[in-house]
Amino acid sequence: MNATIDVSLRELKFTVGRALHAAGVAAGAVNPVRDLLVDAQALGHDALAELHRSLPQLPAHHGAIRVSRLNGHLSIDGLGQPAFLIAPAVLDLGVAEAAGHGGAVVEVSNCTGPGMLAALAGRAHLHGLDVSVLAGSGRGVTTTVGQQPGRAWTNGTTAPGALLLFSAGDRAAGPPTPRDAAGGHIARLLADGSRVDADLWWAVYDISNGALTPDSILSRQHAGSSVLDEFGQIVGEIGEDDDYPQIQAMSRTARLAEPTNN
């Protein structure tokens, strides 16, 4: 058995978000996608693995979808993108549709890893809705979503898409409150963290660091009030201790990291 690591909600959000940035997802689209992946992980899906698998294909995608109405309900063409990337749009459309009709049926086709759509239940709950996800060949899905070749599900079955049912839930719609964190999937994540494969975690973590900027002598001058030597190494600090003789001596032989930006 591989080693595991318990990661916190905060760590999950930071690492997943940065990985999406590093993979080229548009900055303004990152947070909703990140939150969906975090919800998915909290709900027991292996979202981190799905993200890791999908990262190479993300630069080719934008997250936009095609929407049409088919047999009285919404039909969404995912344009071949990972389901987690289009999930925020699916949620939006389902919520807006349900608001006018008390419920909604949304078909999603042509996406990879559609199992991730089950995680929409987390956010839909805040809108006062429950989401049921039906997939595969049952209940008429294939009759309306069969144009694309079948794609691999995360649970191992094969299906071309998903059928989502949005219906009234047991929570009134409204902004999240601390009470929402006291129960449910996020509460479990907050309390216990998420246990993930350690190798997988550090692999995504390393990728996420691609969103950070490499260090340099110049870069070190963009923060702090340090005394640097000619190699960019910090030899002292300008501040409350700047009258300390040893620091003063170092300052005379070192280059003061004067800010270039102020």
Binding site: A26, A27, G28, V30, N31, P32, I65, A89
Partner: peptide, 8 residues
């Protein structure tokens, strides 16, 4: 749906 970069 067509402007996901503005969702955030």
């Amino acid at each position: 749906a067509t402007r996901p970069e503005l969702r955030g």
